[in-house]
Computed example of a mutant assay.
Amino acid sequence: MADYEWLSEVRSMVGREYGRIYAWDDVNPAMVRQWCEVMGIENPLYTDPDYAATTEFGELVAPPAMLQAWCLEGLHMNNYPPGSTDENPYGVLKLIESHGYPAVVAVNSELSFERYLKMGEKLYYTTLVKDVSDEKTTGLGTGFFVTLIMSFHSVKAGGDEPVGELLFRVFKFRPAQAAKPAPAAKAEQPAARRPLPGISDDTRFFWEGCEAGELRIQHCKACNKLQHPPAPVCEHCHSFDLDYRVARGTGELYSFVVMHYPEVAPFDHPNPIGLIQLDEGVRLSAGLVGVDRSELKIGQRLKVEFETFDDQLTLPLFRPVSD
């Protein structure tokens, strides 16, 4: 059993109780409702005031399992309400870490409750360093089991009342050195290819047009209007009598985005994508080429050009042109 000199400082912390950490908010129905929604809890005792009024409590109460949630710091680390202690109750973990035990894993957590919490109660907890084990060796590595106990209280004018307790035990350890397997030979990865579009009877004319160097836009014979993307029925008059018209391929940049992440092969990155307002009045999205991304402007003139990828997919791309 190891007995390092620095362990005396660690053991001196055992039995020390650290000051109060207050809750940011009183126990309230909004947080209870949101917690129940996330956890899938449908007990009306927590969310239905009319039902709760018929119970032994006479009013809404909070789910006991929410106990720890009331005093959490929130999005930002160590962001506790005014009046909370400045002491670090986890200093014992930091001290062990500083002596070469960087890893941590939760071992067990046990909640116990004195009673249900009612709306409007103000909570705080204190932290007791209950125990630090001798050095132990496990499958994970070698280190120390540290047990902390958080005691939760409700602030009362006549004396604060205990409402529950959380026992939290972690293993602070130096990871075991696993034997490294011999690196496997890397299989040569095939070059990524552009994904192919799903082609149906309603869209085939568009893709065949791209192969022929034509920008084909769906046309309704009944109302003489254009629409894109193609559909089985006219979005204007609901006619099924559809064909297409060949657009001039000119228009202006209606909107755009420059995609930086995620980087997906085989697309270039950053990847500028535009929403183009064709001179015929319809809009379509397409890749932008020959552009300076810092100089993209809404309304700038564009013209279509067609490019074939992987010898199997021809796409309409748009390039800026002079007015």
Rank of each mutant, 00 (worst) to 15 (best):
M1G: 14
D3M: 13
D3E: 14
Y4A: 08
E5D: 11
V10E: 02
R11W: 13
M13V: 00
E17A: 00
E17K: 14
I21C: 03
Y22S: 07
A23T: 00
D26F: 09
V27T: 06
N28Y: 08
E37K: 14
M39K: 14
G40M: 12
E42T: 14
E42H: 13
L45Q: 09
Y46D: 05
P49I: 06
D50L: 12
Y51F: 15
A52I: 07
A53Y: 08
T54P: 12
T55M: 09
E56K: 15
E56P: 05
F57R: 10
V61I: 14
A62K: 03
P64M: 03
P64S: 11
A69S: 15
A69D: 05
C71K: 02
H76C: 01
Y80F: 15
P81C: 04
P82Y: 04
P82L: 04
D86I: 03
P89A: 00
G91W: 05
V92H: 09
L95M: 10
I96T: 11
I96Y: 11
E97F: 10
S98M: 04
H99C: 03
H99W: 10
P102E: 05
N108F: 10
K118R: 15
E121R: 03
T127C: 04
L128P: 00
V129F: 01
K130N: 09
E135F: 04
T142K: 15
F144I: 04
V146L: 00
L148W: 02
I149P: 00
H153I: 03
A157W: 07
P162I: 00
L167N: 05
R169P: 06
V170I: 15
R174V: 02
R174H: 13
P175H: 05
A176H: 10
Q177H: 05
A182Q: 04
E188T: 14
Q189P: 00
Q189H: 14
P190Q: 05
R193G: 03
L196M: 08
P197L: 03
P197D: 01
P197A: 00
G198F: 07
G198L: 13
S200Q: 06
E208H: 08
E214G: 00
L215D: 03
R216D: 01
R216T: 06
I217P: 02
I217A: 03
H219N: 08
C220E: 02
N224T: 15
Q227D: 06
P230L: 03
C234A: 11
E235L: 10
S239N: 11
D241F: 08
L242A: 01
L242E: 05
V246W: 00
G249M: 09
L253I: 12
S255H: 07
V258H: 06
M259P: 07
Y261W: 07
A265I: 03
A265E: 15
P266C: 08
H269E: 04
P270A: 07
P272M: 09
Q277S: 13
Q277M: 12
L278N: 08
D279P: 08
D279C: 05
D279Q: 02
E280V: 06
E280A: 07
L284N: 09
L288T: 06
G290A: 02
V291L: 03
V291Q: 02
R293N: 14
E295K: 15
G299N: 12
R301D: 07
L302R: 11
E305D: 13
F306A: 01
E307G: 02
F309T: 01
P316V: 03
F318N: 08
P320V: 01
P320M: 12
V321A: 07
D323S: 13
